[in-house]
């Protein structure tokens, strides 16, 4: 199935969770804020959130330093 993430189309397998998708992108889930079809996903929900066809994800990644 296809999803959109930060404006780019991705092909992901059925049953892919948000946590799994972030791992595929080699992102530390704790440093990423996820907006899924304009809804902010709570960190504790990443593991249980199944991606669905056509979903539009916006990822905001934070890097250390301040």
């Amino acid at each position: 199935m296809k999803i959109i993430c930060n404006g780019t189309e991705y092909e992901v397998g059925q049953g892919t969770t948000l946590l799994h998708f972030l791992a595929q992108l080699q992102l530390d889930p704790d440093t990423v804020v996820v907006e899924c079809d304009t809804e902010i996903i709570r960190r504790e929900a990443y593991e249980g959130t199944l991606l669905a066809p056509g979903q539009n994800l916006e990822l905001i990644r934070f890097v250390g330093g301040g």
């Binding site: 530390d28 902010i40 934070f62 250390g64």
Partner: peptide
């Protein structure tokens, strides 16, 4: 960066009425 992300999530969910200016990079 973990705290940066956590507080940004708060700003977009539980603290929506507050202005917020974060930083990254």
């Amino acid at each position: 960066p973990v705290l940066k992300a956590a507080s940004f999530r708060l700003a977009l969910t539980d603290m929506k009425t507050m202005g917020y200016v974060g930083a990254s990079g």
